[in-house]
Design a protein around this nucleic acid. Sequence first.
RNA 1: GGGUCGGUGGCGGAGUGGUCAAUCGCACCUGACUGUAAAUCAGGCGACGUAAGUCUACGGGGGUUCAAAUCCCUCCCGGCCCA
Length: 404
Amino acid sequence: MSKIITDEKLIEEFLERGVEAIYPSKDAFRKKLLSGERLRVYQGFDPTGPYLHVGHAMGIRALGILQKLGHEVIFLIGDYTAKVGDPDKDTTRKMLTDEEIEKNMAGWKEQASQLVDFSGENPVRFERNYKWLSKLNLNDLIKLMSNITVQRMLERDMFERRIKEGDPVGLHEFIYPLMQGYDGVAMEVDMEIGGTDQTFNMLCGRDLVKSYLGKEKFVRTNKMMDAPDGRTMSKTKGNGINLADTPEDMFGKAMAYSDDHIISGLEFLTNVPITEIKRIEKEFESGTHPMEHKKFMAFEIVKMIKGEEAANQAQEHFAKTVQKKEVPDVVASIESSIEDSIVELMVSAKMAESKADAKRKIQQGGVTLDGKKIEDINAKITKEMDGKILKVGKREFRKLVVKK
RNA sequence: GGGUCGGUGGCGGAGUGGUCAAUCGCACCUGACUGUAAAUCAGGCGACGUAAGUCUACGGGGGUUCAAAUCCCUCCCGGCCCA
């Protein structure tokens, strides 16, 4: 059992950065953290997609702070709840099969381990809610349901809207908040962390913990960061900056944010001190070039997840390939033989989806060899091409290795 | 159980016998431009084929027809209303 630390700086960091609200209040939770009591905290993740993204990183990093403070941290995988599907804004989600869930879960530990520690003397623990939810019987369910009123469910604006517009609302969707809330009961937690989209579910759970265990479950809601395309970042849509992305991709995706996301990006997705961010915000207003700030943000995002060295490399890569349009330092090579067709080579190297796609790319002028456009869709590999760089689109580079 | 509407490409959603590989929007791809992988603009977007064309595809199966996503039969699935 590890010692509880009451480092005020870390505590303030936990209470402030990226936080929308803490229930019942920040002060109450600060007091709790300072009390020396060891708390059990968790965040749940539904395995609806294979990749965690930087939005999840906000919560995971918050868990990491509590881990450092010596508290007991649980990384909950909602393998059972994912089967029901959290009610979406306007659609009923389809239920996932076991295989899909297993597939999506693979690699999560690795992705999350960039921000929390799954080993050491106070390791973050994995749980799966299948363990307890699958055992609930009808009596248990009825008891659970008696804690929440239909009125409260219907109040949820998402349901309200769907009903008004004649969109279907599955009855099982009402059970979702109860199941999520029961997780907290089963694990006897003191706090749950989640995005603001989880507020309703988490507060239902707070009531359940109070009623079943007679104690307070604190709730921290995180502000939500948009994806670079301006929509909400989502595992299902796959539009986020993923924790499993290469540093180069992360950097590039971060640079795709519009300028007005820079400040919130710095606050939510990096470790840059809040005071520093305030300073940048001021500088921003006085008219420094946003590009520099955005690069700084991209750099810091990569640094937080992948480390400083990777961030440096990613930045260099971006400057080279995107800004100067040069060939990057490290290029994967592909083997080919003389007389192979370029088109087929592109397909086998996954630079095009099909031969038709490859031909289209050539016809549209998107394929170059050492900077020279390939015009002929029937072009064949020659021995002169050995060692040259084949480029497809803006950022696909392969070095040709021609076997004699 | 009764009535009714519907199941079309990754998604949304047109299309009701040939001119449909299927309007359009989103997503995606390529190009131009840009501080940016943003925005904008242009083009593309089933597969195979240099092409003519061929094949596969409009919930599943069967049928009518010279010809079906479109008509008929049947099965499966869903919405809404009534009981």
